[in-house]
């Protein structure tokens, strides 16, 4: 299981993660090694075994839909790198 450079770039794009050329090569090597090691999982017979998403028997936790105080807008915006009035400011999505 060896990843290609193109595969690494594809994954990085899916993750919106910028990488330098050196990082692309290093990750290609390291991820390939890790995945090769993890191929042992394919040896395990999981016929009729359901997947586990989490380990305790809680399901569909509901709460009543009641109005309660929420955090004030000024605080929510307090850590914003860029803001304009009462909004987070972002780069244009559609150009």
């Amino acid at each position: 299981m060896r990843l290609t450079r193109e595969e690494v770039l594809h994954i990085a794009r899916l993750a919106r993660l910028g990488l330098t050329e050196a990082e692309v090569e290093k990750l290609r090597e390291q991820l390939s090694n890790i995945l090769e090691n993890f191929e042992v999982l394919q040896q395990v017979d999981t016929t009729d075994v359901p997947p586990t998403a989490q380990a305790i028997d809680l399901q569909n936790v509901m709460r009543s839909d009641e109005v309660a105080p929420s955090l004030p807008q000024s605080q929510i915006l307090a850590n914003a790198p860029r803001r304009e009035g009462e909004y987070f400011r972002v780069r244009a999505v559609l150009e």
């Binding site: 994954i11 990085a12 990488l19 394919q42 586990t52």
Partner: peptide, 29 residues
Amino acid sequence: KRRIMLGTYALSAGYYEAWYLKAQKVRTL
């Protein structure tokens, strides 16, 4: 970065069943 890449790969189209779902099943065992 390494873990974001590894996780994104394991969840990506075409690899999800072989990696993520398989791992979840072995988790059950």
